[in-house]
């Protein structure tokens, strides 16, 4: 059977650097796939290839039955893919609500004519955009609701991360790609995030792929974990399988340390 997202032999090279080498990966609706690996392992590059920011050099990528190689990010969003960014990238001079409303862009149609005449269809569409945006904001309880008219740049860091997720939810995705959603959060906030990511899977049925350095978060939410090192997928399986994989430990700690750990065990 075919998966929602399926990568086969995807590679990306920058000059002499092989950032992503021959990676296979899949994700299905209602599951959370973690992507781990040391710094520079090619995780974010893989995200950028999948979401159309980079074109892959080789490999086959399908999403929801479409061949997505070479499609642009906006086309992928339309197909149902949404992402967040490693360094939070909100529209700073826009309000919280407007940030979320932008997410609805591909699901709506009003053009110049609609904007100028403000006809009934446009007004209804605007109302519907606002509603969708508020619904997504309220996913985070009262963290974002009540602050709709604040500038995005005025939000606290964790709230900025939350708003990025809300903005992605408004696009009406089937697949959510989260790039280090827990970065910079304190332990309590991470706990909250773990529950919320779980809810995104269970209540919304999204397929979720997330990159994370924080192992408790990976352990807490992921149904399956893939580990990358130097662009190569070196392991895949449950969290425990991957965490005990020698190659993964080597990648994180170096050969000597790994050997020492073997000896101890």
């Amino acid at each position: 059977m075919s998966h929602l997202l399926e990568l086969e032999g995807v590679s990306k090279r920058f000059g002499g650097v092989q950032a992503v080498v021959d990676v296979d990966l899949y994700a299905d609706s209602g599951e959370i796939v973690g992507v781990i690996g040391p710094n520079g392992a090619g995780k974010t590059t893989l995200f950028n290839v999948v979401t159309g920011f980079y074109a892959p050099d080789a490999g086959k990528m399908t999403f929801d039955g479409h061949n997505i190689s070479g499609l642009k990010p906006n086309a992928l969003t339309r197909l149902g893919m949404a992402r967040t960014f490693q360094a939070v990238r909100l529209f700073n001079a826009m309000t919280v609500l407007e940030n979320a409303m932008v997410g609805r862009h591909t699901r709506t149609r009003a053009g110049v004519w609609g904007a100028l005449t403000r006809n009934r269809r446009t007004r209804e569409e605007e109302a519907q955009i606002t509603e969708e945006a508020r619904k997504a904001l309220s996913f985070f309880g009262n963290r974002l609701i009540g602050r709709e008219d604040s500038l995005a740049s005025d939000l606290a860091y964790a709230d900025r991360r939350r708003l990025e997720i809300a903005r992605a939810m408004v696009t009406g995705p089937k697949l959510l790609l989260l790039d280090e959603p827990a970065a910079g959060m304190n332990p309590a906030e991470k706990e909250e995030l773990i529950t919320q990511i779980g809810r995104l899977r269970d209540e919304y049925g999204y397929a979720i792929v997330l990159i994370e350095h924080d192992m408790p978060v990976i352990k807490g939410v992921c149904d399956r974990v893939a580990a990358l090192d130097h662009g190569v997928k070196i392991a895949e399986g449950t969290y425990d399988e991957v965490a005990s994989n020698t190659q993964v430990i080597e990648a994180y700690l170096g050969k000597a340390a790994a050997a020492q750990r073997e000896g101890l065990a």
Partner: peptide, 21 residues
Amino acid sequence: ARIGRAWAAMREDEDVAEGMG
């Protein structure tokens, strides 16, 4: 309007605007 928001998003961050569709 929707167009104005799209422009504003593009002005703020072109890549992300594209990523948001």
